[in-house]
Amino acid sequence: MTRDGNRRAKDGRDQAELTEYRRRRDVDRSGEPTGSGAIGDEPQFVVQRHDASSLHFDFRLQIGDVLVSWAVPKGPSLDPREKRLATRTDDHPLAYADFEGSIPPGEYGAGTVVVWDRGPLQNRTRHDEQDISLEDALVAGHLRVELFGEKLTGQFSLTQTRIRGNDRNWLLVKVDDDDADRRRKPERTQPESVLSGRTNDDLKD
Rank of each mutant, 00 (worst) to 15 (best):
Y96S: 10
D136L: 06
L85A: 01
S54D: 02
D41Q: 04
N6D: 14
S54N: 04
D14H: 00
T87L: 11
S30K: 09
Y96F: 15
W116A: 08
Q48L: 11
A9Q: 12
D41G: 12
A52Q: 10
R124A: 13
V173F: 00
Q48P: 07
T161D: 01
H50G: 10
D79P: 01
M1K: 05
T112L: 04
G37P: 05
G111D: 11
V145W: 01
G149D: 03
D28H: 00
L61E: 03
I132M: 10
G35C: 03
A97S: 14
D205H: 10
D136W: 03
T189K: 08
L195K: 13
D26E: 09
N166H: 15
A137K: 02
E82N: 02
E42G: 07
G12I: 07
L172N: 08
R25D: 05
L172M: 06
N123P: 05
K151N: 02
D136F: 06
D65H: 12
D79L: 01
D28N: 09
L18Y: 06
T153C: 10
T87I: 13
N169C: 13
R168N: 15
T189P: 02
T2P: 14
S36I: 13
D136H: 12
R124S: 08
S53M: 10
S102H: 09
S77K: 05
R29D: 04
Y108E: 11
R168S: 14
E20A: 15
G106W: 08
I132H: 07
R198L: 15
E129K: 14
D26P: 07
D91T: 09
N166K: 15
N169A: 14
E146F: 00
L78Y: 00
R162V: 13
R88P: 02
I163T: 12
G197H: 05
D202I: 04
L138H: 04
L152V: 05
V175C: 02
K204T: 00
E82V: 11
D58M: 14
V27M: 08
D178V: 09
S36E: 04
D179R: 10
D98I: 02
Q62L: 04
H127A: 09
D4S: 13
G111I: 11
L85Y: 01
R7P: 00
N6W: 11
T153A: 09
S133N: 06
D65K: 10
I39H: 11
R144K: 13
T112N: 01
D202T: 05
V173P: 00
R88I: 08
Y108F: 15
E20L: 12
H127K: 12
A16G: 13
D90H: 06
R23C: 02
S102Y: 09
H127V: 04
V46G: 06
